[in-house]
Design a binder for these strands. Structure first.
Lengths: 311, 311
DNA sequence: CTGTTAGCGCCTTCAA
DNA sequence: TTGAAGGCGCTAACAG
């Protein structure tokens, strides 16, 4: 089934059908109606390949997922982003490509990178929008307000009367973690944290980092962790050495992952919406593809403190 | 850059380049080498749209994700499947489509359905492989050995000396849950469960279902839950009424989700590999697309008992 | 406002 | 073993 057949049924030419299908102006209402009813009655769907070949768009965008570091706790983030992306693509198709990105024949590219490097499709000359702030490079991105979330966490621990707080900062090359810690420091103002130690994005690494911190600074009464995964390790370690959470030590995480809700005690954390992130990034890319002007280079989405039992 | 330019550089015709690119036999080694070096030096990539239009394939498959029920705990499953799929597609592109599937221009279709209904793309006349057994319909599918996993769980509780076990069975229209419970019953042999109650796939629903079960059967010493999410609710409820896990009551879940490892006590559960599931389904679809004969209608992947603290 | 025309880049007979 | 030629279904000028 092709344009030709639709045109014949509607009693017009191929071009006219094409015009209607593409929403061009300059088609009389009567003609348009005739074409639309023909399309509907035949259940006609345009051939995407022919469309791409003749036109200038492919109507598909690539979603490049970088999977560099340990990802145990990132699954929910990824599905959330994907969900948001597919719903924000406005009819375009999303092709998923995994790490060494070799995508072609796409109109644009969305990159979900959880580290700060740029796993950018090489030799790809289409608009790109990153999900998550890159540590360097002038590309457009959408990110959660990690800095603001860090501020929320900091103010919360201050409000709880915690005066000697440690920070399990995550990896220094993960922009989200860097920003979270920066925000946290800002909230503490003149009284800096009792200690800031980097760690990997796993509970085990969080536990080990906290053990090291407590060895040198035993009187800590609060811990801010750059992710929930780290916080879960921190809580586990604290309980293993007989410290009560939150009575002796308050713990705050970041992400509002499922794990944060099921662990004991349930984690106070900062929520970000992966779905909004994906949706907004898709929107930004589509806007660029449709030629909108004066688009923001970066978009930052609000985060929110969720108070539970650990603080 | 197109075939023409490559042909010119290699000193042959377009047809010959096309033959080399598509691996047709009947090209002299010398010619083939010349073409390949031209392709490499120009970094030529065929235009996918033109290829689809002229040929008979699109080299892309749809991944249809059905999101019917509460999905809080399914994220890891989905990303696992997706990861497996993309790596099993052998160069083909994966387009993701969400629930009301309206995909076209694909060679085949992978459907990830977590309920038993068939959210099948209507009017799609391409091969389909389901990830997860459908409750009805004669479509090809790949599934975890939920029945076998249920057997493992049952034997385990028997070996632990548990004689009065309850079952939180999940929804009756989710094939995976149905199979898990069937396997569990089989392992118990002549001594049936003390009670089997359906519930939704959430911790809260699991807690409520267990409360109801305990009301009528207070002397239960073991609980098998169709998913980890349900098990987490069960554990929470048991502890809230002062029962010790596992001393008073053993609890076994299913899925080996992240939540199972971080909750207290850590859950004994049955592991399935979402990645293997996706990879195998992709393999099965590709095999059908490449014309392989005598393919199995269903493929079942082994599951594995993971013993932790809750039993 | 509508129809005619010329390709888009590739695969695939058919000849040579 | 290779080349020439036609056409896949559509869009985008260009006429009328």
């Amino acid at each position: 089934m092709n344009l030709e057949e639709v045109a014949r049924l509607a009693g017009v030419s191929r071009s006219t059908v094409s015009r209607v299908l593409n929403g061009s102006s300059g088609v009389s209402p009567a003609t348009r109606a005739a074409v639309e009813s023909a399309v509907a009655s035949m259940r006609y769907l345009p051939n995407q390949a022919a469309r791409s070949l003749a036109g200038t768009r492919t109507d598909t965008v690539a979603v490049v997922v970088s999977e560099v570091h340990d990802r145990v706790f990132d699954d929910a983030f990824l599905t959330g982003v994907l969900r948001g992306v597919t719903s924000g693509l406005d009819g375009r198709r999303a092709v998923v490509a995994v790490n060494p990105p070799s995508v072609s024949d796409v109109d644009g590219c969305l990159v979900v990178s959880m580290d700060g490097h740029d796993p950018l499709p090489r030799g790809l000359s289409v608009p790109v929008v990153l999900v998550g702030r890159p540590l360097s490079g002038g590309l457009a991105y959408v990110d959660s307000d990690n800095l603001g979330g860090g501020v929320l966490a900091g103010r919360h621990l201050v409000a709880r009367g915690r005066a000697r707080v440690g920070v399990l900062a995550g990896p220094p090359d993960v922009a989200a973690c860097v920003d979270r810690v920066a925000g946290f420091r800002r909230a503490l103002g003149g009284s800096p944290p009792a200690g800031v130690v980097p760690c990997a994005l796993t509970p085990d690494s969080g536990a080990a980092a906290l053990a090291g911190l407590l060895a040198s600074t035993p009187d800590i009464d609060g811990v801010f962790c750059a992710t929930d995964a780290i916080a879960i390790g921190a809580v586990r370690y604290l309980r293993s050495v007989g410290a009560r959470v939150p009575e002796d030590v308050s713990v705050v995480g970041f992400d509002d992952s499922v794990a944060a809700t099921v662990c004991t005690p349930a984690l106070t954390t900062v929520r970000q919406s992966a779905e909004d992130l994906g949706n907004t990034a898709a929107w930004r890319l589509v806007a660029e593809l449709t030629g909108e002007q004066d688009l923001p280079q970066s978009i930052v989405l609000a985060t929110e403190l969720v108070i539970r039992e650990s603080s």
